[in-house]
């Protein structure tokens, strides 16, 4: 193998390693496990709404193998986004990239837990970014459409650029080789809409400790 390909391999492994350390498993209590992203060091986790849909018995497994109960803070089925809190602090957080500047042809990688394989990676390129896609559900919504082998367990995990910065939340596939992600700027907007742009309030975090975190203050769109 040429030096160039060896170096390419080394760099891809390096780019993915950082993002992998910020990937969590989200267990929804019915045997399913999606992926999630450590968004902030204080325990804010972002994933897909469909990963946590209708479940109260949520648990999050951190990269260090700790499994903690999680509280659903907010979700939006339309945008397929959800925010969870776990009682942890000092977590390594993922760096946010710029989803608006993605260009077709650019290299990206998706990480998740397909078929229970933690941190499995698939790589490919951006097909396109924006709201104009043929044969897509919910016309007018913004997407990052990528050419790689995304699978159901990738849901909620990060789509990262070559520097390991998250540019999208893996959400669905429209074919065996076409993955679709919610752009990271849409996820940022979602967190602002539901008032989670700052730090998580102590009250909300405390609810994650016990079992009584009934969804009383749950924000839903």
């Amino acid at each position: 193998m040429s030096d160039l390909l060896q170096q390419l391999n080394a760099e891809m492994a390096e780019a993915i390693e950082g993002a992998r350390r910020r990937l969590v498993e989200v267990h929804n209590g019915c045997g399913g496990a999606g992926a999630g992203i450590v968004w902030r060091h204080d325990g804010l986790i972002v994933t897909n709404a469909h990963v946590v849909a209708g479940r109260h018995d949520l648990k999050v497994t951190l990269p260090d193998k700790r499994t903690l109960p999680a509280c659903l803070l907010a979700y939006d089925n339309q945008q397929d986004l959800a925010a969870l809190a776990i009682d942890a602090d000092g977590l390594p957080t993922i760096e946010l990239g710029d989803s608006r500047s993605l260009k077709p042809g650019q290299w990206v990688m998706a990480i998740g837990n397909p078929w229970g394989v933690a941190g499995a990676v698939t790589a490919g390129i951006v097909i396109g970014e924006g709201a104009q896609f043929p044969e897509m559900p919910a016309p007018g919504r913004e997407w990052v459409v990528v050419s790689l082998h995304m699978r159901p367990g990738h849901s909620g995990g990060p789509l990262v650029d070559i520097n390991g910065r998250v540019v999208g939340i893996n959400t669905m596939i429209t074919g065996p080789d076409v993955g679709v992600a919610v752009p990271v700027h849409v996820a940022k907007r979602f967190l602002q809409q539901v008032g989670l742009a700052g730090t998580i309030k102590q009250r909300e975090k405390r609810r994650t400790n016990g079992t009584t975190y009934a969804a009383t203050t749950l924000w839903a769109a």
């Binding site: 390096e14 042809g105 070559i162």
Partner: peptide
């Protein structure tokens, strides 16, 4: 940090453009 990957990614995007 990522010289080859950066160059590859940029080159692909440039070819498409």
């Amino acid at each position: 940090t990522m010289p080859v990957l950066t160059e590859l990614s940029n080159a692909l995007a440039a070819a498409v453009e």
